[in-house]
Design a protein around this nucleic acid. Sequence first.
DNA 1: CCGAATATGTCGTAAAATCGATATATTGTA
DNA 2: TACAATATATCGATTTTACGACATATTCGG
Lengths: 103, 103
Amino acid sequence: MSEEEPGLAELRTRFVRGFLDVTIMKMLLEEPLWGYKMMGVLRDRYGVKVGPPVIYPLLDSMEADGLILAEEVYSGKRKRKVYKVLPKGETMLKNMDRILKDF
Amino acid sequence: MSEEEPGLAELRTRFVRGFLDVTIMKMLLEEPLWGYKMMGVLRDRYGVKVGPPVIYPLLDSMEADGLILAEEVYSGKRKRKVYKVLPKGETMLKNMDRILKDF
DNA sequence: CCGAATATGTCGTAAAATCGATATATTGTA
DNA sequence: TACAATATATCGATTTTACGACATATTCGG
């Protein structure tokens, strides 16, 4: 009916995909998360489908960069790698805020 | 000397490259620009090198999408395609602002 | 006890982005 | 008059990124 607007949803998807690392760290400030849970939050909150081949290598590289740190949490025999943001990651988030504010 | 921080400059480059269309429209709100001039502004203001094979097809597709409109301006025999932002482009910028504000 | 959901992870290809090189023409400067 | 800068535009190869499909193991509900 209405002509397609330059979709808010599409822009948000672009932003989340383009700054998935930053988005993940923002999410981590709100609640403890592990890879599988992140995929669900990204789907439910942003409508962005992020699969295992995207999330797990990304989390590994972010940890290697010193942005986040994993802690292995067991509930029974099930292992979860719960992440938290490190100081370097917090600096990155502050820099991101500055860029977005200036824009 | 100091270890590399999660660079403000690198983040800005990522943002500009990832949202080159949006960045260009923001620039167009401030001053009239054409492709060649845009490359210089992007280099001088953001330190982002954007070459001809990137800028010209992008401007064409943005015009095809109805985001911007080109006007051919002649100074002598030299042709410049000066762009302005169309309503659809303004809507996109407003949506972008909303996303960045919510983030 | 079986299937769906949870949880992490990789392979290999397919799609997309990037970017140097090239092409053409005009204008300004030394 | 020759060279640098302005201005638009494309080709093609390389590099990067995305993503379906697969693999493995645990847990929970019916």
